[in-house]
């Protein structure tokens, strides 16, 4: 009996794995990232854990956490698309520093979130262009992308370091 019951479960698990691999391949503008994320989706660290590792390695001053309300009001992200998230924003209003990592519910959710994040990048560049050229340049070159169901933006001079930490922890 036990064996009979476990067969459908195993088949379902195999089907899910195949689906995950299929999804990530479809997203991949960067093949290596997508491939790795698809294989390790279940083993990846949570956004909160990744954010904690970032804060261990990068000095972030005068930052405050982004709340659910912020995610909704500042980015226009539908919380129904979000499994979990972590992010911080400059608390002074003087700098453009900001980072956000979201684990989306599925590939479609990730796409919708990425669209909102890119709109946020455009908005921040637009705001900074007239009076904060350094901030404008930082936001412009900062990564806003997704890997599997992880969607992220890093508006920071340390964006490369942050991105490396993220990649190391979702591989």
């Amino acid at each position: 009996m036990k064996l009979k019951k476990s067969v459908p479960i195993i088949l379902a698990a195999l089907a899910l794995s195949a689906a995950l691999i299929g999804c990530s391949g479809g997203n991949a503008s960067s093949g290596s990232q997508a491939a790795s994320s698809s294989v390790t989706a279940t083993a990846a660290a949570s956004p909160e854990e990744i954010a904690a590792k970032i804060k261990e390695s990068v000095t972030l001053t005068d930052m405050q956490p982004l709340s659910e309300s912020d995610i909704s009001s500042m980015y226009g992200i539908d919380l129904n698309d979000v499994v979990s998230f972590a992010g911080e924003i400059d608390s002074t209003g003087l700098r453009t520093d900001e980072f956000l990592i979201i684990q989306a519910k599925d590939s479609d959710s990730a796409d919708r979130i990425l669209t909102k994040m890119k709109a946020r990048q455009t908005q921040r560049m637009n705001e900074a262009k007239n009076y904060n050229p350094e901030g404008y340049a930082t936001v412009q070159k900062s990564p806003v992308a997704k890997t599997g169901n992880y969607v992220y933006l890093f508006f920071s001079e340390d964006a490369d370091t942050m991105l490396n930490i993220l990649n190391e922890n979702i591989e």
Binding site: G76, T115, A119, Q123
Partner: peptide, 8 residues
């Protein structure tokens, strides 16, 4: 212009 729900 202001953005609401991610739309300017």
């Amino acid at each position: 212009h202001p953005s609401y729900n991610g739309t300017e």
